[in-house]
C-alpha cells in the first residue's frame, strides 16, 4: 500500500523543510498487543505489533477498533517497522474497556494512517509543547526531528506530580522541561506560563503543540505574536475518519479534524472566533 521509504531513515533536505506526500488508507489491519506499561493512574502505553507496515507521518492518527465495543481515534506515539505505540488515557467507555480488558496478546484492529500530520524539517530549531496525554504525537515527531538533526526543546505540562510521564523518553531526544500546577515537580504553573518564560529568552523556527485546546490556543497566540510558525494537533470525536460525515468539523471554518487535520497551521486556528472546547465536553451534534 505504502511505497514511501521508511520514516525511520534520516531525511536529507537542504531546504530544511520536508512535506511528505499524504498517505492514508482505511482498511483494517490486525494487530496484537505486545506490551503494556502503566504510565500514570489513568494512562497506559500499548505497544502493538501489526500484520503489515503502515509508515505513518508523525501527527497522523489511526482508528482503533475493538469488536463489539467501539472504535476510537489515536495519534501515533511512536512507530517503527510494523510496531506502533499508543498512549491511551481512560476517558470514556471504549478507553475504560481497553484499560480493563485489553491484555498482552489481545487482538485489535486498526485503520490508518489517516489525516494530515506535522510538517517535518531538518537542521531547524524546534519547540515541542505538550499538555497531559496530548504529548503522544510529539514523541514520534520529536524522534524523527532528532534523527534529522533538528535542535529540540520540549516543554511538557502536567496537572500534578502523579500525572507526570514520558519525561525520560523525551529527555533522550530533546532538551526537556516539565511543569506541574502544584509545583511538586519541575516548573510551578501551567505549561503556558513556562512557554511565556522560554519565549522571553529564545526564538524557534517552528513550534509544535498538542494538548487541551484552551492551552493550545494560548500557545499559538503567544508564538504567532512573536512571528513564529506554529502547528497544532486537535482532538475531536471522530466518526468516519475519512472526511465524509462532517462530525468532527471545527466551526466556523468547517475544518474537518479527521481529513483537513488533525494537525493545523496555527494561522488557521487564529481565525476561529470562539475559543475551542475540549472535545469530550462538546457533543458535535450541537453543530
Amino acid at each position: 500500500m505504502n511505497n514511501r521509504s521508511s520514516m525511520n531513515k534520516p531525511l536529507n533536505d537542504e531546504a530544511g523543510s520536508i512535506q511528505l506526500p499524504r498517505q492514508t488508507q482505511s482498511r483494517y489491519i490486525l494487530g496484537e498487543v505486545y506490551s503494556i506499561r502503566q504510565l500514570t493512574p489513568s494512562i497506559k502505553e500499548y505497544t502493538i505489533k501489526l500484520e503489515e507496515e503502515i509508515n505513518p507521518n508523525p501527527g497522523q492518527f489511526a482508528m482503533l477498533w475493538i469488536p463489539d465495543i467501539g472504535e476510537i481515534p489515536l495519534s501515533f506515539a511512536d512507530y517503527s517497522t510494523g510496531t506502533v505505540k499508543f498512549i491511551i488515557c481512560r476517558v470514556g467507555f471504549v478507553t475504560t474497556y481497553i484499560h480493563r480488558n485489553i491484555l498482552v496478546g489481545s487482538r485489535v484492529y486498526l485503520r490508518g494512517p489517516l489525516g494530515n500530520g506535522f510538517t517535518l524539517c531538518s537542521l531547524k530549531n524546534c519547540l515541542l509543547i505538550g499538555g497531559g496525554y496530548g504529548l503522544a504525537p510529539l514523541y514520534y515527531l520529536g524522534r524523527i526531528l532528532a534523527m534529522n538533526n533538528c535542535r529540540l526543546k520540549t516543554l511538557l505540562g502536567f496537572k500534578n506530580s502523579s500525572d507526570v510521564f514520558y519525561v525520560s523518553e523525551f529527555s533522550e531526544i530533546s532538551d526537556t522541561y516539565i511543569s506541574t500546577e502544584d509545583g511538586e515537580e519541575g516548573f510551578k504553573g501551567t505549561v503556558v506560563d513556562m512557554v511565556r518564560k522560554i519565549l522571553a529568552e529564545e526564538t524557534f523556527d517552528i513550534v509544535y503543540v498538542c494538548g487541551r485546546e484552551q492551552m493550545l490556543m494560548k500557545v499559538v497566540k503567544e508564538c504567532s505574536a512573536k512571528g513564529m510558525k506554529t502547528e497544532a494537533s486537535l482532538e475531536r470525536i471522530i466518526k468516519c475518519g475519512v472526511g465524509l460525515c462532517g462530525s468532527c468539523s471545527v466551526e466556523p471554518l468547517g475544518l474537518r479534524v479527521c481529513r483537513d487535520g488533525p494537525v493545523f497551521d496555527g494561522r488557521l486556528l487564529l481565525k476561529l472566533e470562539d475559543p475551542l472546547k475540549n472535545n469530550r465536553e462538546e457533543i458535535c451534534i450541537k453543530n
Binding site: 465524509l244 460525515c245 462532517g246 468539523s249 466551526e251 466556523p252 468547517g254 474537518r256 453543530n287
Partner: peptide, 8 residues
C-alpha cells in the same frame, strides 16, 4: 455527506 453545518 458533510451537509450538517453552514461552514461545511
Amino acid at each position: 455527506i458533510l451537509g450538517s453545518s453552514c461552514s461545511l
